[in-house]
Computed example of a mutant assay.
Amino acid sequence: MSNKKFLRPKEVEEIYSIKVSTLAKQRRGRYGLPFVVVGRKKNAQRGGVILYNVDDINDRLNDQRRSTL
């Protein structure tokens, strides 16, 4: 895996096999993986770069695995 701390949605798809469309649906529904938006103007609904923290992704996926065991 990469040493990057943050990943864009396409990179999340490539590494974790979670489709970009699924990530977008989760963001709109306000559930799923935690993310941040960088470069969005205050009070704007669109624009900016969506980033996912690698540690947050791993923590969330590990929590889900534990809860299904």
Rank of each mutant, 00 (worst) to 15 (best):
S2Q: 12
S2T: 14
S2G: 09
K4E: 10
K4A: 08
K5S: 08
K5T: 06
L7Y: 00
L7S: 00
K10Y: 04
E11H: 00
V12R: 00
V12G: 00
V12A: 01
E14Y: 01
E14D: 06
E14F: 00
E14C: 00
Y16T: 01
S17D: 09
S17I: 07
I18F: 06
I18V: 11
I18M: 02
I18W: 03
I18C: 06
V20K: 05
S21M: 06
T22D: 09
T22L: 12
T22E: 09
L23N: 04
L23G: 02
A24G: 08
K25F: 11
R27V: 11
R27K: 07
R27F: 06
G29N: 13
R30Y: 13
Y31W: 14
Y31D: 13
F35C: 06
V36P: 04
V38G: 03
V38F: 05
G39T: 09
K41D: 14
K41F: 11
K42G: 03
A44V: 00
A44T: 08
A44I: 03
A44R: 09
Q45S: 14
R46E: 11
R46S: 12
G47R: 09
G47A: 07
G48R: 02
G48Q: 01
I50W: 02
N53K: 05
V54E: 07
D55M: 03
D56G: 11
D56S: 14
D56T: 10
I57H: 01
I57K: 05
N58E: 11
D59C: 08
R60E: 10
R60I: 12
R60D: 12
L61K: 04
L61N: 01
L61M: 10
N62W: 02
D63S: 12
Q64V: 10
Q64H: 12
Q64I: 15
Q64N: 15
R65E: 06
R65G: 05
T68F: 12
T68L: 14
